[in-house]
Design a protein around this nucleic acid. Structure first.
Length: 132
DNA sequence: ATTCTAACA
DNA sequence: TGTTAGGA
């Protein structure tokens, strides 16, 4: 399910297409970029190229606007989301760290027991059985 | 034909 | 936010 995110983040739409898809004006779309709500890439000719993710955000902004939320409020919403992502990123790192610790303990266990990885199934009480 | 930046009768 | 000028 990683391929999907990659496609959604590919910048392939010129602003004209985004205008038709979102019904927002070019002025508005560029302004929201200025507010760091979207980050379209630039083509060779300095033209903005938008991704599906950018379009999703623009549509969300359009909804917030319809609900009477101003730019300051919308910016806060996305600032909070970024802070939440940062925390999840840290948790992800800690999970990977725990996994690394397990691998280290495993290799140390093999080293101390004097066995090669191929001999692991010969052990009756190997705490690392079925984990690799 | 489209999009870009900058500026404002 | 709209609109327009002048360039790419």
């Amino acid at each position: 399910m990683k391929e999907k995110e990659l496609r959604r983040s590919m910048s392939v739409f010129p602003i004209g297409t985004v205008i038709k898809l979102t019904d927002l004006s070019a002025r508005q779309i560029r302004y929201y970029e200025e507010q760091d709500l979207i980050h379209p890439q630039r083509s060779e000719g300095n033209r903005r190229m938008y991704s599906l993710n950018d379009i999703d955000v623009l549509l969300e902004i359009k909804d917030y606007l319809a609900e009477g939320i101003n730019m300051a409020g919308i910016k806060r919403i996305y600032e909070l989301q970024e802070k939440e992502k940062e925390e999840k990123s840290r948790q992800s790192e800690k999970t990977l760290t725990d996994d690394d610790v397990r691998k280290i303990l495993y290799s140390e266990f093999l080293s101390i027991s004097g066995l090669s990885p191929k001999d692991k199934n010969k052990l009756m009480n190997n705490p690392f059985r079925n984990q690799h």
